[in-house]
C-alpha cells in the first residue's frame, strides 16, 4: 500500500487543473533552488503547508512525517559541507587535533543553512504535487508537454502493475512470515530473495495474460485512452502568477536590504 498515492485520491485539490498544479510546483521549485533564499524558503513552506494540509486535507501529523523523510540525507550532506580538515583554522569554529584543524568558515555554515532551508522548501513543493495530484493526471500533463509516447505508455502500465505486484508480494511475505521466514537476518535475506524470484515468475505469467487481454480488445501497438482534463480556473492561474511574482519581489527586496 502506497500511502501518498492513496492520499492524492482523497485530496481536496484533486480536481484542480493538473497543468496549473504542475506549473506552480516547477516554478516555485526553481525559485527556491536558484535563490537559495531563507525568506523564500519560509514563505514557500508556509504556503505549501497551508495548501496541502488545509485545502488538500492531508492530516498535519502525516505531513510532518513526510517532510522528515529526506532528513537523513540532508543531515549527512550538511555534515560533509561544514567539516573541513585544514592546517589553517577558519573563522566559524576550529578544533585542533594533532597538527590539523577540524574547521569551517562562517560563509560555509551560512551556505549549509540555506541548503537546508531551500531543501525543505523544495521537498514541500514536490509533496504539493504528489499529495494532491493523481498519477493519471500527472501522466496526462506529461503527454501535453510532449513526453515520448513509449515512455508514457510504459508509465501507464507500470503504475497499474505496481499495485498488482504489491498485492502478490505482500501475500507471499505474509505466508513466509507465519512460517517464521523473517525471524533472523540470515533467514530474512533468504526468504526475501525467494519471494522476489517467485514474484518475478508470477509477474511474467501475468504479463502474458495481460497482453492477451489487450490484444483481445484491439491493441495494435498504441495504447489509446481517453484523456480527462478539467479546464483551468482563471482565478487559480491568476493566484499562481501573483504568488510567484510576489515571491520573486520579496527575494529581490531582501537582497537589496541585505538580509537573506
Amino acid at each position: 500500500m502506497i500511502l501518498i498515492d492513496k492520499m492524492c485520491y482523497r485530496s481536496g485539490l484533486r480536481y484542480m487543473n493538473a497543468e496549473v498544479k504542475f506549473a506552480y510546483t516547477v516554478v516555485t521549485l526553481l525559485i527556491c533552488i536558484v535563490s537559495r533564499s531563507l525568506i523564500a524558503a519560509g514563505i514557500v513552506l508556509l504556503a505549501n503547508g497551508i495548501l496541502t494540509v488545509k485545502r488538500g486535507g492531508i492530516p498535519f501529523a502525516l505531513y510532518v512525517k513526510y517532510m522528515l523523510i529526506p532528513l537523513a540525507f540532508l543531515l549527512m550532506s550538511t555534515l560533509a559541507l561544514i567539516v573541513n580538515i585544514s592546517r589553517e583554522p577558519l573563522d566559524a569554529y576550529a578544533i585542533l587535533i594533532g597538527s590539523w584543524y577540524l574547521t569551517s568558515s562562517k560563509v560555509s555554515l551560512w551556505f549549509a543553512l540555506r541548503q537546508i532551508g531551500s531543501g525543505f522548501a523544495s521537498v514541500s513543493c514536490l509533496y504539493f504535487l504528489a499529495l494532491n495530484t493523481t498519477m493519471t493526471d500527472i501522466l496526462g500533463t506529461l503527454k501535453k508537454i510532449h513526453c515520448p509516447q513509449l515512455l508514457l505508455e510504459l508509465m501507464l502500465l507500470i503504475y497499474r502493475f505496481i499495485f498488482v505486484l504489491m498485492d502478490t508480494a505482500s501475500a507471499i511475505m505474509t505466508a513466509q512470515r507465519v512460517r517464521l521466514g523473517y525471524e533472523k537476518l540470515r533467514t530474512s535475506l533468504h526468504s526475501f530473495g525467494e519471494m522476489a524470484a517467485a514474484l518475478f515468475i508470477r509477474a511474467w505469467k501475468r504479463s502474458n495474460a495481460l497482453y492477451d487481454a489487450l490484444e483481445s480488445r484491439g491493441y495494435d501497438g498504441e495504447l489509446r485512452v481517453l484523456e480527462e482534463s478539467r479546464a483551468a480556473d482563471r482565478k487559480e492561474i491568476a493566484a499562481v502568477i501573483v504568488f510567484e511574482i510576489s515571491l520573486i519581489f520579496v527575494i529581490w527586496l531582501a537582497k537589496r536590504i541585505g538580509i537573506e
Partner: peptide, 10 residues
C-alpha cells in the same frame, strides 16, 4: 489480468 489502467474511465 485484464485491467491495465489505474483509471476506470481510461
Amino acid at each position: 489480468n485484464q485491467l491495465f489502467s489505474a483509471s476506470v474511465t481510461q
